[in-house]
Design a binder for these strands. Structure first.
Lengths: 71, 71
DNA sequence: CCGTAATGTCAAAAGTATTTTACATTCAGA
DNA sequence: TCTGAATGTAAAATACTTTTGACATTACGG
């Protein structure tokens, strides 16, 4: 199960991208973007950096792990 | 293949932790810490956050993807 | 309302991260 | 030099991420 929050959808919409636009820009599939936006699983670290980069933010701002989990 | 750089080893030594100390503190195995320090593979996003947290830094400062790869 | 674009979802397969167990190498101190 | 501690490494098993292909649902402009 996945405990990370993210605001990819909000930032994506600000840029008027479709899930598919983001996906092709990052070299992944639309299903991957959809799954991450809907918290099905976390992206790899590399994909997290690519997402932050294209959305004009940082990994630390884009994702927020449950504070409970940061022992 | 793994294209991410990190300075976990340096920060770990500043804190006088052994690989095993970091591992048990984060709930992973020593082999995992060793593999990440030696760039065998990237950690998951969650483990990256845990590492940054315990080492007193941020994911963005702790890891640096090859700029080439950030299209 | 109708058509179509966008999003949601699913199952199977492939790729990658992590664990476990085990052994090898390096290095500092007694 | 000898010992023990720390690190490096490897293979097999398991878990998780991503792809592929396909179909369902939602939302919106005409």
């Amino acid at each position: 199960m996945n405990i990370m929050k993210n605001n990819i959808r909000e930032l994506r919409k600000e840029k008027n991208y479709r899930q598919e636009d983001l996906a092709t820009a990052l070299g992944v599939t639309r299903q991957t973007i959809n799954a991450i936006e809907n918290d099905k699983y976390d992206p790899t670290l590399l994909l997290a950096f690519k997402l932050a980069n294209i959305l004009g933010t940082t990994v630390d701002k884009l994702f927020a792990p449950d504070p409970e989990i940061l022992k």
